[in-house]
């Protein structure tokens, strides 16, 4: 009997016996990519609580300890999730998924110029971090995850389904952009990569969907609409009723274009829904 058990142990597929690779991701996008690519060979954790923005969330120290011990840590890069630059993460087990296209980051000059000390007058640049809304770049991030998984898993990772899906999104977005003659108005500056990739002008406001817009904010929007009648407004999450009413009063087509950063829905489904909603809004304008 022991010999039989030994033979079974030796011939049983190693992947069945091995513990799943423990992966932690800084947001739902990378978590979804890892889960899609790794299947049963991985367990993926995205520790940001529901409703919190992964870009600005900071884990508790005990949570950081758990993240540090993961088999693979998926980082976005481009300054996303600032806490990851404020603690030690094991370099050998961390993947910066945008490392392959840092030369294509979008940087903006911060609007405040100040002067102090020996540095004299200067302003600072900021890097736009929501890289995955350029779906071709999202495909590169997916490939970076696949490469990291390939180094750690017994079975090669098949990227075709996910990458094909991302490139289909890219094609759909490109078609939408080609047909647009109005800009998008964004409640928050999340759409820089989307705008650049698909040739769409994006005018950024600073509205919080969870807070009723102020008179000054509405006045600013009215100014924008004077110059760009028919522009479509993007919320990054569902607004409070006052926000919805304010836009309706101005006859503005508005949609929720969820960036998917903290999301239960699979990325491809979420973005397909976003693009379909955008196309519908543009078509009805």
């Amino acid at each position: 009997m022991p010999r039989l058990l030994l033979v079974l142990f030796l011939i049983w597929p190693a992947s069945v016996l091995a513990e799943p690779l423990r992966v932690v991701a800084v947001n739902s996008v990378l978590a979804n990519f890892a889960a899609t690519l790794g299947g049963e060979a991985v367990t993926v954790d995205m520790p940001v609580p529901e409703g919190r923005d992964p870009m600005h969330w900071r884990p508790a120290i005990a949570e950081i300890g758990q993240i540090q011990s993961a088999d693979l840590i998926l980082l976005n890069g481009a300054g996303y999730a600032g806490w990851t630059a404020k603690t030690s993460l094991p370099r050998a087990r961390s993947v910066v998924t945008t490392k392959g296209f840092e030369d294509r980051f979008i940087t903006t000059e911060e609007t405040v110029t100040h002067s102090h000390g020996a540095e004299g007058e200067h302003s600072h640049t900021a890097t736009s971090a929501i890289t995955w809304l350029d779906f071709a770049l999202a495909a590169e991030q997916a490939r970076a995850i696949a490469a990291a998984l390939d180094q750690r898993l017994e079975t090669p990772v098949d990227t075709s389904t996910l990458v094909d899906g991302l490139m289909a999104l890219d094609a759909q977005a490109r078609e939408i952009g080609a047909g647009m003659d109005v800009p998008l108005i964004a409640a928050h500056p999340y759409y820089a990569y989307f705008g650049r990739a698909y040739g769409i002008e994006v005018i950024n406001l600073d509205w919080d969907p969870g807070v009723p817009p102020t008179a000054a904010q509405i006045a600013r929007l009215e100014d924008v609409l004077m110059k760009h009648p028919g522009a479509v407004f993007l919320w990054h999450r569902a607004p409070v009723e006052e926000g919805r009413i304010a836009l309706a009063a101005l006859n503005v087509q508005a949609i929720v274009f969820d960036i998917g950063a903290n999301d239960e829905k699979p990325f491809l489904d979420r973005m397909t829904g976003n693009l379909d909603a955008l196309a519908a809004a543009l078509g009805s304008g």
Binding site: I61, A62, I64, G65, Q68, S69, W83, K86, T87, S88, H116, G117
Partner: peptide, 24 residues
């Protein structure tokens, strides 16, 4: 022992921090 946050603030009004876990 439960981990700490090391804050630095300078006279010019700059500040930053670093997190040290128990393992660190």
């Amino acid at each position: 022992s439960a981990g700490v946050v090391v804050h630095v603030s300078t006279e010019g009004g700059h500040s930053d921090y670093w997190i040290l876990t128990p393992a660190d």
